[in-house]
Amino acid sequence: MSVWDTCADGTLVGVMPSEEITCLRSYATGYVQLAEYGLRSCSWVEGHTVDSGRLFPGAAILDERIMAIVRANVPAESPDWEIALLAPDCLLEGIEAAERVRRTLPEHDSVVVLTAPEDFHAWSRLIGDVLAAIVPYAAGSSARTRQRAAETEDWLRSLREVVMPSAAAWGAR
């Protein structure tokens, strides 16, 4: 079980069991791999000015986990064409968040220190994206896999409840 406290300057300090740190690092690494897989079919299209352009999907995204992540980060009323157009940017932003979370995780001890608004937002983003991907991952799986997915969801939601107020407090500054 993790223990967290907020310092007077807004820094969030947590002591997490090494198993939880390892697990979160694994989710961040897995997220990057999944997002990079989703980006493989994308092509860069140059813009009309220097250093402009964007990634465009070259094929429909068929991985339900990736689609769940993208849908969790775009407005609910977005049509399919808009979701497809926003998917590459969404995945790139998710990769940035996952990599930032990995950098905040300690290598040799159990103390996690989140000091910047970007840290809080990265944690919130990664947790939200992993939660979005769990549902299609567990669907149709064995009862044991669904049970473990439910336990993971509970743990991630409790972790997000710690991080979200700090993210909101930094956003108000």
Rank of each mutant, 00 (worst) to 15 (best):
R103V: 11
T104I: 13
L105E: 11
L105R: 11
L105F: 11
L105Y: 09
L105M: 13
P106E: 07
P106H: 09
P106C: 09
E107F: 11
E107T: 12
H108K: 13
D109C: 10
D109Q: 10
D109N: 09
D109R: 10
S110F: 08
S110A: 14
V111I: 11
V111C: 11
V112K: 02
V113W: 09
V113Q: 13
V113P: 04
V113Y: 11
V113H: 08
V113E: 14
L114F: 06
L114I: 06
L114T: 01
T115H: 15
T115C: 14
T115K: 15
A116T: 12
A116N: 05
P117Q: 07
E118C: 10
E118P: 00
E118Q: 10
E118A: 14
D119R: 04
D119S: 06
F120Q: 00
A122Q: 02
W123E: 05
S124R: 02
S124W: 04
R125Y: 07
R125S: 09
R125K: 10
L126C: 05
I127A: 01
I127H: 00
I127T: 03
I127G: 07
I127Y: 03
G128S: 09
G128N: 01
G128R: 01
G128V: 04
G128I: 07
D129A: 09
D129S: 10
D129L: 06
D129K: 03
V130H: 02
V130P: 02
V130G: 00
L131M: 08
A132T: 07
A133E: 05
I134H: 01
I134K: 06
I134Q: 03
I134R: 07
V135S: 15
V135D: 15
V135T: 13
V135E: 15
P136Y: 13
P136L: 14
P136V: 13
Y137K: 12
Y137P: 07
